[in-house]
């Protein structure tokens, strides 16, 4: 039986891991390579790295980080942040990532999804969606871009369906409302988007404890965590044991 996945997310800026609340006030958390290795050894199922470096020139630093991770981490990882071209996607994949994540640039140029999928396969194209509850769209969920700062007026369900048609292989649903609150994932929003597509979905934003993860895994194929493991309040084995106790299939390495 296919296991539910526990994914750890690392935001990387200028080669360092950082974490913010509601996409702001970022703090330096350390070296992403050694953090990735630690999570791998503790049994994480997958990792995600978002490059939140502002300048394009610093991108090379991010690729270097990915290459170092590839040498020591033997579980899949996804990388993204500012991916606007097939060429940059290719650099990420050649650095050893299994998947590349597109977000703002895919909203601006939806063909980017199809272009990457045709060249490297749908399985490696992950659509990252920053979403928030809103009255501006018919489903009540709106897509945001630019790291959650800019409302687009786009309906999240329509965008998810369109992305699947264009060739996305997975969707990360990041709730701006829940992100950083530690009050739990936005299960309702996750469920609605998950039901709209036939590709796997990953819930993101709001994890405060293992029960939150169990709650959202009823509506998604994977759960993404950051703060609760970065700050050491929870460990990967501890979360996984809890998930397993609730009869949810999960890999115990």
């Amino acid at each position: 039986m296919l296991c539910k996945r526990l994914i750890v997310c690392l935001d990387v800026r200028d080669g360092k891991t950082t974490k913010g609340v509601k996409f702001q006030d970022n703090q330096d958390l350390g070296d992403p390579v050694s953090m990735a290795k630690k999570y791998y050894e503790m049994g994480v199922d997958e990792l995600v790295f978002y490059d939140i470096t502002a300048s394009v020139e610093r991108r090379t630093l991010f690729i270097d980080v990915l290459e170092k991770i590839t040498r020591q981490v033997f579980v899949p990882f996804c990388a993204g942040g500012g991916v606007a071209s097939v060429e940059f996607a290719r650099r990420i994949l050649l650095a050893g990532a299994e998947k590349v994540s597109v977000n703002t640039q895919a909203v601006q140029n939806p063909q980017l999804i199809g272009d990457i999928a045709r060249r490297f396969g749908s399985q490696c194209v992950v659509l990252g969606m920053d979403v928030a509850r809103s009255n501006a769209t018919s489903s009540g969920i709106e897509v945001y871009t630019h790291g959650g700062r800019k409302a687009t007026g786009i309906d999240a369900l329509e965008w998810a369906g369109r992305a699947e048609e264009l060739g996305a292989g997975e969707i990360v649903i990041n709730s701006i409302d829940a992100d950083g609150t530690k009050d739990g994932y936005d299960c309702e929003v996750t469920q609605k988007i998950n039901q709209r597509v036939t590709i796997p979905t990953v819930a993101s934003g709001g994890a405060g404890n293992a029960q939150h993860i169990v709650d959202v895994l009823g509506h998604a194929n994977a759960a993404l965590v950051a703060s609760i493991v970065h700050y050491g309040t929870h460990s990967i084995p501890q979360i996984k044991r809890y998930i397993l106790e609730k009869d949810i299939p999960v890999r115990m390495s």
Binding site: M1, L2, K4, D45, I199, S253
Partner: peptide
């Protein structure tokens, strides 16, 4: 959901040297 993406178990249906010391039903 397609793709079949993630960790799943392998049931060994035939012995093979490449699976030496790999226990059954590992993910």
């Amino acid at each position: 959901k397609i793709p079949h993406m993630g960790w799943n178990q392998i049931a060994i249906v035939q012995e093979h040297p490449i699976l030496d010391e790999v226990s059954n039903e590992k993910e």
